[in-house]
Nucleic acid binder design. Structure first.
Lengths: 331, 331
DNA sequence: TTGTACGCGTTATCAC
DNA sequence: GTGATAACGCGTACAA
């Protein structure tokens, strides 16, 4: 069994209370006493009992990363991986641990909400891309510090969130295509129940409207297969496209294949720009020109905001990061 | 503040002890009493306090997923994503939560070990691909239920582990190339400090030896860049290769590009087989023929074994899963 | 500055 | 079958 405060106190020749003060860095302990206690701590290999501490402080020193979608796609998503890295990096110097909460099956919302309400964690980061989930609204109203990655669709109450400027990112992509002299621009958009899908389409539409150019849109679901269907449909309806903005890299790889099967060359005949700058962006021929989002940074900020809220800060509203166009071979 | 056992007991007109029995499903409670208590629980929205419970039971109802490598690559690795899905699926019906432990920077081993020794979790799953880490040995000897994903290199004590049969998987790939009439086979191997790197190379070497064929090996580091270097070196030294086994998909995508830049066609001139069946396998042209490993299943089994060990089972030794060849366009 | 004593919410061991 | 009651390890008023 691991040693307790009591044993450390006995060895150091002081009381439990004093040891506790040393452990928690109280300023009013004599240097000599501190030294003695610390020696005892090292000698015994003392580690505070988290449960006992949590019981009295009502802090668990752990935060949750919630993925309220049974949709397994989230994991293979490089976005999620980046968020994870950022969050864990920000938490590292802290005493807080990261608890992963994944909704195993659709409709198991209550279990999740109960857990969060049960005081098992000090706060939660919600990583959800799909809107319309009525869970989001409930999550937002929990009496618990919460931060959303991406502004949650359909949630009316003010919440703290961190996101990338998808509209601006899409604009950059489309404007880049224009700068290359392309005028017949189409887009493979994402699902309209995700902010990323909506906003990136909006960015495209805004530029097209400003330029007085006609739109050409097909919808995919952010998967390779969906992207393929959408690209086929798009080129079927608009065979003369000379530029294409695809709402994410995975669909863009499919578009590349479709274009080549149609006997057209990238980027000579059709220039293609993706979004994400994920691993797949460099596995294609030619490599993808794409819009990079600072995912790790997003995760870091998410954790920082949450920790601040846990410590009483009153932060609400979105915090927006900008994107960067990464130019490779496809456009 | 959330309600306590005491309050539930008061409302139900019974004692704390009885409520506790109901909550924990003790068989010896009168049905009527159970009903009354359950009603009170629902009415109050009672949720057991984890800290208080952990304090007395000495069980935390949480297990750790440990990534003892500051190497950020792990996250973008589809392998990790699959493991995560499997583990969390297996944990879902349980009361156990998943705590993610990531070593923020090299050499911070002590912090990790202290945490694990501190009784904050009931057990741990170690996801480590690199060997040579002296942490692994220490982890293996912790007085805590532990399971390794992949047999830990350099660890002498017997441990529980779950892995895929990398040697057999590589054999399948190479034998498939042979069955296609290819005889000049090369391989882009992974790093020799990872079991996956070593074993996949071994599989290739075994088949070549059996067939009395000469080896052609170049080493990469499982990244696209590393794969490119290795492929260039390999074709420089062996320009006449007609078949290539690459130890992972990411490097295989780079090999595809190199081969095409060399003016040779895939699969007509050079047939290529990868390993992993990750997302990138379908983003290339042609799509990759590759060896799929059941990552989700691996994760599930990892969690199952850990839970069994926590409950007292004495499981040690490796558990091996088999792979499957997925035939696409590259071979 | 340090020690004493109580309470945090549960589970477990007794009696009844 | 059910109810007292003693731990579990720690933080913190309060007293000294």
């Amino acid at each position: 069994m691991s040693p307790t405060l009591e044993q450390v106190a006995a060895l150091a020749g002081v009381s439990r209370a004093t040891v506790s003060r040393v452990v928690n860095g109280s300023p009013k302990v004599l240097p000599d006493t501190v030294a003695a206690v610390e020696r005892a701590i090292v000698e015994l290999g003392y580690v505070p009992n988290r449960a006992a501490r949590a019981l009295v402080t009502r802090r668990t020193d752990s935060v949750a990363l919630v993925v309220p979608e049974p949709d397994s796609r989230v994991f293979s998503d490089p976005f999620f991986a980046g968020i994870l890295r950022g969050v864990s990096a920000a938490l590292a110097p802290t005493s807080s641990q990261l608890v992963l909460l994944i909704e195993p099956s659709a409709g198991d919302d209550q279990r999740l909400l109960r857990y969060l309400r049960g005081g098992h964690v000090d706060g939660a980061i919600i990583v959800s891309h799909h809107g319309r989930d009525n869970v989001l609204q409930e999550l937002a109203q929990l009496p618990l510090p919460i931060v959303f990655s991406a502004r949650p669709l359909g949630v009316e109450v003010p919440v703290a969130s961190v996101d990338v400027d998808n509209v601006a990112g899409a604009r950059t992509a489309v404007e880049y295509l224009l700068s290359k002299g392309r005028r017949k621009l189409g887009t493979v958009a994402g699902p309209v129940d995700m902010t990323a899908g909506i906003d990136r389409l909006t960015g495209y539409q805004l530029v097209m409207a400003e330029e007085g150019l006609p739109e050409a849109v097909a919808y995919g679901d952010f998967t390779a297969d969906g992207g393929e269907q959408a690209a086929l449909k798009l080129f079927d309806e608009h065979p003369d496209l000379d530029g294409l903005f695809v709402a994410n890299d995975l669909m863009a790889t499919a578009a590349l294949r479709v274009i080549s099967q149609l006997g057209r060359r990238v980027p000579q005949d059709v220039a293609v720009v993706g979004f994400d700058d994920s691993v797949v962006a460099t596995t294609t021929t030619p490599k993808l020109t794409t819009v990079r989002q600072p995912v790790v940074q997003l995760g870091t900020r998410l954790a920082e905001i949450l920790l601040a809220k846990i410590n009483g800060a009153d932060l609400t509203g979105p915090e927006i990061f900008s994107t960067e166009l990464i130019i490779r071979g496809s456009a």
